[in-house]
């Protein structure tokens, strides 16, 4: 029971990443693997800046900017150099591994004894409650910014790009730019999430991004199935709740005795099942129809 608050908090901190994955996977209709590198990039930039005395807010903003830049690189590879999106993301991800090592100077940077975004506010709450509150505030800010941005003309053009590039080009929009902007937004958020998770864990690690995409997808799909996709706002809320539910599920299976090393396998199987659900549904329905007819 005492795990409830930290579990929800983790869900909130990671949900910022999940929103990023939602923006590429669902809005732009691209599976972007950059996130496997931009998540630890956010952690690395934030940790490196915190250890040399920057305040946590600037560290998070810098992480965001770095993440955005990585998204722009992937977007450039994809749109200008015509490299398939999946491969463009893989190239960025691999390159970021070296970049992240350079930023941190080593594979792991500890943040113990250093002020983080969860400790700077003078408050009488204990640490656990503080993480929850900060997580809530940040998710709220991120949610509002996204809701606003994707409701503007530019945001609508990005969403239309994901649905139908022909249509939006025929309406005068340069899809290279909308794709790059979408990847920028996405990876900026993913890096912010990396910066938050690193601060809550007390360290940044070059390997902390492994499986990011799959965790993001799991959260997106769980959210969509449980909480709906009626409107863009509905989707944003679903992704955040999906991310929390994912953490709760993980906490439960760990409690039930699953070895932590099997977590990634578990998540991969979960996402595989969820992604193949439409296929099974179609098969099931056509069988039913055949029986009925």
């Amino acid at each position: 029971m005492d795990l409830i608050i930290p579990t929800i908090s983790q869900g909130l901190l990671w949900s910022v990443m999940s929103i990023g994955v939602y923006l590429t996977f669902r809005v732009l209709d691209i599976a972007d693997l950059t996130v496997e590198g931009s998540f630890p990039l956010g952690g690395a930039v934030a940790a490196a800046l915190l250890t040399i005395g920057y305040n946590p807010i600037s560290a998070i903003l810098a992480a965001c900017a770095a993440g955005m830049l990585s998204g722009v690189v992937t977007g450039f590879l994809h749109t200008k150099l015509k490299i398939p999106a999946l491969l463009a993301g893989i190239l960025s991800m691999i390159a970021l591994y070296s970049v992240n090592l350079r930023i941190m100077g080593k594979a792991n940077l500890s943040l113990l004894q250093i002020d983080t975004v969860f400790t700077i506010f003078p408050a009488s709450f204990d640490n656990q409650t503080m993480v929850l509150l900060v997580g809530l505030v940040i998710v709220l800010i991120v949610g509002i910014i996204n809701y606003w941005f994707f409701g503007t003309e530019i945001g609508a053009a990005i969403r239309a790009t994901g649905f139908n590039q022909h249509m939006i080009r025929a309406n005068g929009v340069n899809t290279n730019i909308t794709i790059i902007l979408g990847l920028l937004m996405s990876n900026g958020l993913v890096a912010v999430s990396g910066a938050l998770v690193a601060q809550s864990n007390g360290f940044a690690d070059v390997g902390m991004g492994v499986g990011t995409i799959v965790i993001g997808l799991a959260s997106v799909i769980i959210g969509e199935v449980l909480f709906g996709t009626k409107s863009f706002r509905n989707c944003l809320i679903s992704v955040v709740l999906g991310s929390i539910v994912y953490r709760v599920v993980i906490a439960i299976v760990l409690q039930l005795g699953m070895p932590p090393n099997d977590l990634k396998l578990f998540t991969a199987v979960l996402v595989t099942l969820a992604l193949s659900l439409p296929l099974f549904k179609a098969k099931f329905n056509s069988k039913k129809r055949r029986v009925a007819g």
Partner: peptide, 29 residues
């Protein structure tokens, strides 16, 4: 090919009403 299926009729019309203009930070629909 001519419409964005996942967007509302109103959103599609809003995009088309600005054909050829650079999208801005104004509210879309």
């Amino acid at each position: 090919m001519g419409t964005a299926a996942g967007m509302m009729i109103e959103e599609n019309l809003a995009i088309a009403s600005r054909r050829g203009k650079t999208p801005s930070f104004r509210w879309s629909a």
